[in-house]
Structures are given as C-alpha cells and as structure tokens.
C-alpha cells in the first residue's frame, strides 16, 4: 500500500555504537524532526557490545539479571519507548522518526506499527525469508520472532525503533533477561528460546552479522521505498543533533538514575 509517493527522507547508516549513544541519537533525531530541523529519518545502526534496553514501563529488577549484566559489562539502558526488555547483540536496528502529520502515521497506533513493520517484512523477503507482521509489535518467520519494535509519539513526532536479529546469541540473551512465567504460559526455558529466531540460523549458520550488515540496512531502505515510495537522501547527523545527543546521553541514557528508575526526574534544556 503506497501512501506517500512524494516524500523524501534522510537515510543514516551508522556503525556499531554504545547503547547509550544509540538511544541518545534516536532521541536527538526525533527532536530535530519535531523542530523542523531535519527531514523524516530512517536510521540503521548496530551495537558495539551486547546491550540490554528496557522499555519505559518495566522494573529493571523484574526483567533483568542485573548482577550478571554488571559482572559481564552488559549495559542496561532505559528507552523512551514502551514495550519490553531487549537483548541487542549482532543485530541490525532501525529507527524511524517522522512527523505525526505523515501519511504513514494515519489511523490507530496499532495500524502504524503494522505499516512500519511491512518494509521490514519486505527486507527479510530479500533474503528469502517469508516473514509476517504479528500484532502488536512483532515480525515472525515460521511463527518465531525475528524482529520486535517499540514506538513513542511526542512533540508531534513518531519515533519507532526495532530490531532485526541477525546473529544474536539466544543462549546469552536468556542469561541476562528474565521472562515471567505468565509470559511463558508454563513453557520450559528451552521452549521459550525456541520462540525466537535469527536470520543466520535460518539462512546459513556460517554467515556473520558483520558481512550482512550493509546488505540488510540497504534492504530495509528498499523496503520503505517499495511500500511507501520514499526517496532517500543519505546524510549524516547535523551539528544540532550531535549536540542534543551529547546532552541526552549525559542526562538520560548514560545516567543510572534514568536507566534504573522509571520515575527519575530528568531536567533537560530541550
């Protein structure tokens, strides 16, 4: 379904960065788009080391084995988006920052999750994977989750970021993340692990995320072009965004008070 045939977006293909930096950049882009200082933006990025992000609402102690994370140097970063707790490792992550006035955001929030998920489905199909959107915020292949996403809406702008698991170590994931029994529906941990899947395990176990990264990033951009007719202009972050990102990293995503406590009061200039 094409809804925005004439839109031009900015495309940023980043490298692997620290978790706090990644979340600060997404927040900075959202603010810049809200302020009319940046085009709608699709950003693709990775993580320089295994990192956990936790949604806006969960308690860290409920969802994360925090002692294991500390021992192994796995950062735990709270997102500004809702949703659950995510282990980021050898994946491609995308973020979409667009005005709420964009044609893509019309309808309900649930519909916009689906609409933004479809380009990811297209991207996976470029690698021969038959993926499907599963409400509320998942994409599955053969019924197993390969991608999840989370969205916030602030300042007249939508930010959605999501993962594409490429070579994620599923065993390591559950070394750091707690899954409530109520969510398991009584399943053993092995069965819970079996509900997620990576691109490499489906395609060829000897493939590496590093080798696929640029191809997947390009496929995601193509997916948006295919679905919405978006034209991309590949650009970097602006000075304004870089300054904001430093501020957000210091005040929020690099700050244990923000990361560990949802009710932390953070004073921001912007």
């Amino acid at each position: 379904m094409a809804v925005a045939r004439s839109e031009t977006w900015r495309l940023i293909i980043d490298t692997q960065l620290p978790g706090a930096r990644n979340m600060a950049i997404d927040h900075a882009i959202m603010k810049a788009v809200a302020d009319g200082k940046a085009l709608p933006t699709l950003r693709l990025y990775g993580w320089d080391s295994p990192t956990i992000t936790i949604g806006y609402f969960p308690n860290v102690e409920d969802d994360v084995y925090i002692d294991c994370c500390r021992e192994d140097g796995v950062d735990v970063i709270r997102r500004i988006t809702g949703g659950g707790t995510v282990y980021h490792d050898n994946e491609v992550t995308y973020s979409v920052s667009i005005p709420l006035a964009s044609a893509i955001t019309y309808g309900t929030i649930l519909e916009s999750y689906q609409r933004i998920g479809i380009p990811i489905v297209h991207a996976l199909s470029d690698f021969g994977l038959h993926a499907e959107y599963q409400p509320i915020n998942d994409i599955t292949v053969y019924g197993k989750k390969i991608s999840g996403s989370a969205q916030t809406r602030k300042m007249g702008t939508l930010l959605q970021h999501g993962t594409i698991m490429v070579e994620t170590n599923i065993d390591e994931m559950f070394r750091y993340i707690r899954v409530a029994d109520e969510k398991n529906a009584g399943r053993e941990l092995a069965a819970v692990k079996d509900r997620v899947v990576t691109m490499c395990s489906l395609m060829a176990p000897n493939l590496r995320c590093d080798h696929l990264y640029q191809h997947i990033a390009a496929a995601v951009a193509r997916g948006f072009t295919k679905e919405f007719g978006i034209t991309f202009r590949e650009e970097s972050l602006t000075e304004y965004e870089l300054e904001l990102a430093v501020q957000y990293q210091e005040s929020m995503f690099g700050n244990p008070e923000w990361n560990l406590n949802r009710k932390a009061k953070i004073n921001l200039k912007n």
Binding site: F57, I80, T81, G82, G83, A150, T152, R153, K154, R262
Partner: peptide
C-alpha cells in the same frame, strides 16, 4: 509496570 504501551508515557 510491564511491556505495554501508554501514550504519552
């Protein structure tokens, strides 16, 4: 707490 979504958060 949980993995739900509330807007605005």
């Amino acid at each position: 707490a949980g993995d739900f979504f509330i807007y605005p958060e």
